[in-house]
Amino acid sequence: MKGTVRKLLIALIWLVLWQISAILIHNNILLAGPYEAMLALIRLGVTTSFWISVLFTVLKITLGFMAGLVLGSLCAAFSYRSGLFREVISLPVSVIKSVPVASFVILVLIWAGSSSLSIVISALVVFPMIYYNVLSGLNTTDRKMIEMADLFRFRFKDKANHIYLPAVIPHLRSAVAVSAGMAFKSGIAAEVIGRPLRSIGSGLYQSKVLLATDELFAWTFCAVILAFLFEKAITAFMRRLLAR
């Protein structure tokens, strides 16, 4: 309780400092204060297009995240089984990992247009992280338990569930927590560049064009909250999925 009060007080002090700076600078384009940002958020929040943008962005990023999660896990499983597959796929995976997201954004815009942009980008950001973590999890599987399961001829389902999954889960959990946040941030960054209709990224871009710093802060606030909720929702979902 004491800790919460303290945190709230500290947050309040920063908000007051922010508001004082805004008043001193006295220029809403350079720096809008928290009061103006809140007004902008309310102004945006009463329009349906705001909620539609939020919904579309969240849906697309979730879809991309899930695609990255599934593809990354599948590729890791194949890599674990086949050394050839691992060698073949290691180049594309490290390319995906090291190429700047902005380059992919441009490429996807050329190939597929802006409407599916954030799906592809968040999938690309998530894929390598999941791939590497699931693969290293699989590599830590207890060889002795594999020997036992093979001799007793466990069904594939049982072997996956009771021999491999326990080794993968800790790695998967941390990868999911990190990549959920990254998927959200890079998905929105991609939207700012590609400006698909009805998206948070377009809203941010719009505020740049109109020099509406208050709206920029309003959209940003909303993106931060959504990223936080997204990460919480995904980790809770994974916890339920992998509960044992």
Partner: peptide, 16 residues
């Protein structure tokens, strides 16, 4: 041929 082993150390699924 099918082998049924009992290994020197415990090899059971710990949470079952």
């Amino acid at each position: 041929i099918r082998f049924a082993p009992v290994f020197q150390e415990t090899r059971l699924i710990p949470y079952l």
